[in-house]
Simulated assay, not measured.
Amino acid sequence: MWAAYKGRVEVAQLLLEKGASPNITGQYSVFPVIWAAGRGHAEIVHLLIKHGAKVNCSDKYGTTPLIWAARKGHFDSVMHLLVNGADVDQEGANSMTALIVAVRGGFNEVVKELLKRNPNVNMTDKDGNTALMIAAKEGYTEIVQDLLDAGTYVNIPDRSGETVLIGAVRGGHVEIVRALLNKYADIDVRGQDSKTALYWAVEKGNCTMVRDILQCNPDTESCTKDSETPLIKATKMRNIEIVELLLYRGAKVAAVDKKGDTALHIAIRGRSRKLAELLLRNPKDGRLLYRPNKAGETPYNIDCTHQKSILTQIFGAKHLSPSESDGDMLGYDLYSSALADILSEPTMQPPICVGLYAQWGSGKSFLLKKLE
């Protein structure tokens, strides 16, 4: 046992030839082959097996020589054990398998050899993590691809409800996110705090991941436990590029958080003209300027409390109606005023053509009358 622990090949050889038992155990039921495998003494592992050491023995926690060798990435020891019939699916301490510990250590070559033995790639550790979950969180792109090629399930959540995709997004691993999306990872699962992969990508401010996830048609209105949609979060972060991406994919400007604030409340309170312009790009969202939050504030009122009005910069200096009592339920005063300012500009010369394109019943005639 001491020779195996210290890596003394000649001493071990001599003792074995003189009849020393290769399967004696010491403290914690540790066999000599376990010591040799865990410390990377491949020659001694080979020697012990040749003299009858049990390849699938285990310590008091159930951890085998293969798990010990894989845990440290001792490739030669792993190979000696595999060639001699080591059980790739035996579980050790904390429900760890050889594959899980090899992945945790990022040992690509060991992982490849284990996968050749067709292990159960969907086994989990005590926290519910599969090998794929661990690789995705750690950013081991090559290992992730090997596991996906081996047929591992992509939608097994851990004990906290996080999916492999969410783990990859939180880690900022773009290539892994793409690989998982290509394998139809479920994009709408809510993990911790009811956050989806899309929400996490927004929170991380990663435009590339947001764009990739949006191409898979996720639910853009899925809320967190604080009732925040991805659009509300992006607006709070003042991330103009992500706000544009979400709006292009149909995210609703009318969604509200737990305070009753829309993205428009947040943009105007934050004095961001660019964000306000983006959020008001669709004329029908003009009505949201007069929608109160739980405190009774409207985006219009918030803007009025500031000396320099954002809305006047966007729509011109004409009067903006603070209420909808005049029948303008769509908030079209803003748009007719802005267009009228352009058309009545003295430098404008006819002929001028104004085209309005919208669905039937959306208020084109109403807007034209206001414009006139």
Score class of each variant (00 low, 15 high):
L320H: 06
R159W: 10
D149V: 07
A267E: 01
P322A: 01
P346Q: 12
C216G: 04
W200S: 05
D59M: 08
I302N: 07
V154C: 00
Y357C: 12
K183D: 08
L343I: 14
V101R: 09
S95E: 14
D188E: 07
A267L: 00
I34A: 08
I44H: 03
G128Y: 06
I302S: 07
D158C: 12
V33G: 07
K54V: 00
V256W: 12
T312H: 15
N206Q: 00
A42K: 14
D333N: 15
Y332H: 01
K258R: 15
K137P: 05
L334A: 04
P230R: 07
G85Q: 10
H80L: 02
H51W: 02
S194C: 06
K274G: 02
Q27W: 13
S362E: 08
Q313D: 09
D219Y: 08
H306C: 12
I240V: 15
G19K: 14
G331T: 10
H319M: 14
V103C: 08
M1F: 11
N293L: 06
I49N: 05
H46D: 02
A338Y: 05
Y153D: 10
G316M: 13
S336C: 11
I100V: 08
K318S: 13
V121A: 12
G38T: 11
L15K: 07
Q307I: 10
E241M: 07
C223M: 14
Q359K: 01
E91W: 07
A37T: 10
L343Q: 09
G171E: 09
I352M: 00
S336D: 11
H306Y: 15
K258W: 06
